[in-house]
């Protein structure tokens, strides 16, 4: 039991919070701009490397340097939207999807050009002792940070979306763009905020994912499909649903290799990532609106 909590549950929640933070952005972009943003994973990578660059200069804990990653990711997202996505907005969305594929490649090759393609670790890279609760529960400090940070962000995001004017107009555009436009909402402002929030959360997710293992140029791309799965599971255009979806996908992935029956892992850990894909594909067929009644494109 203790082993289950220490080696499966907490890592699952930690990877789940990474998925959750990434999926929020994907879900919001999908809901408001109506296309699947395939460069979102690489936006995470950019955020992770932004922190890495700051950590090389400033002697602080990497978690405190996350604003540098956020700024880099937000700037990249806004530029890319202005230069590459906006000219295609009047066309069928599939062109924007193709364009975002190209943007993913551009982001990744930029990261490789500037920082090289080897694995890089944050800080000293040494193994830090885990936090110990009640003598038996051992959790890595990073996992606690990730889970707590995600919870706090979820709270702020909820307040933002339900209490502020900008947040409410974002939800309005996501629910019914024509009606929102007729009602006089500033769509461009909503789009801008979508990118800012999406990119900022992607940077946080990228940092935690990078700190958990190491930063490398494929970091975000490898996480992209579980995040899509999470966004669909939560319902497109439902940020809180995407959060929940992220945790569910994270739990499903990690717990699938727990020896539920007998001594063997239920599903070999090398197929762990396939679990998310299978969930995603089943969802797309059976319940594409997700658990929380998201929109259907």
């Amino acid at each position: 039991m203790i082993e289950f909590i220490n080696f499966y549950l907490f890592p699952a929640l930690a990877i789940g919070s990474v998925y959750a933070l990434g999926a929020v952005g994907i879900s919001m972009i999908f809901g408001i701009l109506r296309f699947a943003h395939f460069a979102h994973g690489d936006l995470m990578t950019l955020g992770a490397y932004g922190v890495l660059a700051a950590a090389a200069v400033l002697p602080f804990n990497s978690v405190l340097l996350v604003p540098f990653g956020m700024v880099l990711a937000i700037a990249a997202a806004l530029i890319v939207d202005k230069v590459f996505y906006r000219p295609l907005r009047q066309l069928p969305t599939i062109y924007t999807v193709i364009s975002s594929f190209g943007v993913a490649l551009i982001f990744r090759s930029l990261v490789q050009l500037v920082w090289g393609s080897q694995n890089q670790v944050y800080g000293s890279g040494g193994v830090r002792p885990p936090l110990i609760f009640f003598d038996t529960i051992r959790v890595s400090a990073l996992h606690v940070q990730a889970i707590v940070a995600t919870a706090v962000i979820a709270l702020f995001l909820h307040v933002f979306l339900s209490r502020t004017k900008t947040g409410r107009s974002m939800r309005a555009v996501s629910d019914d763009p024509e009606l929102a436009e007729v009602a006089g909402l500033d769509t461009e402002k909503v789009v801008r905020w979508t990118w800012i929030i999406g990119a900022a959360l992607a940077a946080v997710a990228g940092l935690f994912a990078g700190m958990d293992t190491s930063a490398h140029p494929n970091l975000g791309w490898n996480l992209l499909l579980p995040m899509f799965a999470a966004a669909i599971l939560g319902g497109i255009g439902k940020p809180m649903g995407a959060m929940a979806g992220g945790f569910i996908i994270g739990l499903a992935e990690e717990l699938s290799s727990y020896p539920w029956i007998g001594d063997q892992a239920l599903i070999s850990p090398s197929y762990k990532t396939a679990v998310a894909f299978v969930i995603m594909i089943v969802l797309l067929i059976v319940r594409p609106q997700g658990l929380f009644k998201g929109r259907l494109l």
């Binding site: 699947a36 069928p92 969305t93 599939i94 999807v97 669909i232 995603m280 797309l284 067929i285």
Partner: peptide
């Protein structure tokens, strides 16, 4: 059989997922 009914964006995701599997 599984994916062809899906709309464009979803088919893209599903086909990447299958390639990855």
């Amino acid at each position: 059989r599984i994916c062809v009914r899906l709309k464009s964006d979803y088919l893209a995701m599903a086909s990447i997922g299958i390639a990855e599997i």
